[in-house]
Nucleic acid binder design. Structure first.
Lengths: 112, 112
DNA sequence: AATAATTACCTTGTGTTGCAAGGTATTTAA
DNA sequence: TTAAATACCTTGCAACACAAGGTAATTATT
């Protein structure tokens, strides 16, 4: 019914993906395909059907803005850029992430 | 429409909660209310409506078993216990968690 | 004895998220 | 002119967390 190992990873990605996107865009603007590559090279497998709706959601929430840019090879690219509101959200996410990492450490206790 | 800071935490909990439950039950058997308390003391806020379906899901997947035990104060308690299959799943989750922590570090890059 | 408080269990309905599996449009190479 | 590559996007589904309810057993209070 499910590939256990892959399902485990998929579930853990939830909620962390938005954090990853904002973190990537904090450094420099990027378009969807390049974000996919950066995630892939960081070992986080994400598919288009996940990323596009996510970017649109974050744009609708005012966390991102975008501009079109012609490409020398292929169709135009939609470059996303983090907004001030996005930076604030990212700050909250940094805190939330650190808290969760600490929580897991606490629960795993002396085992780890 | 949403409390941003709390929503961020709620989303990040997704997928990690199952990991927390198995980790808690790895150490010793426990019943729902005591699991709630342990999570709370580790700073992870979870409500009953989240925990009960989760325990039932994990039991149905064969990751947990349970037994009833009378209580000296109140109704009987349902003590959950991790199974061998649960331990295997926990092993996969340990790996998945470490991978995600590494991934975030990679993405945050030299910033952190 | 009747009522309230406490402790423990559980369910239903809703919104969010990730994914599989599709699709459209532009440019370049064959 | 056809195919390949690149880039965009949508629809339908399943899993999850949560709010807001509810039931049942024991003990304390009136």
């Amino acid at each position: 019914m499910e590939n256990s190992a892959e399902n485990v990873r998929s579930q853990m990605r939830k909620g962390v993906l938005e954090y990853c996107i904002l973190s990537i865009l904090e450094k420099k603007e990027a378009y969807a395909s390049s974000i996919l590559e950066e995630l892939k090279s960081a070992n986080m497998i994400v598919v288009e059907g996940t990323l596009y709706p996510l970017l649109i959601r974050q744009k609708n929430q005012g966390l991102l803005s975008y501009r079109w840019e012609e490409s020398t090879q292929g169709p135009p690219r939609k470059y996303y850029c983090i907004t001030e509101k996005g930076r604030q959200q990212l700050g909250e996410m940094d805190l939330a992430w650190q808290e969760i990492v600490e929580t897991i450490k606490t629960i795993k206790g002396q085992v780890l």
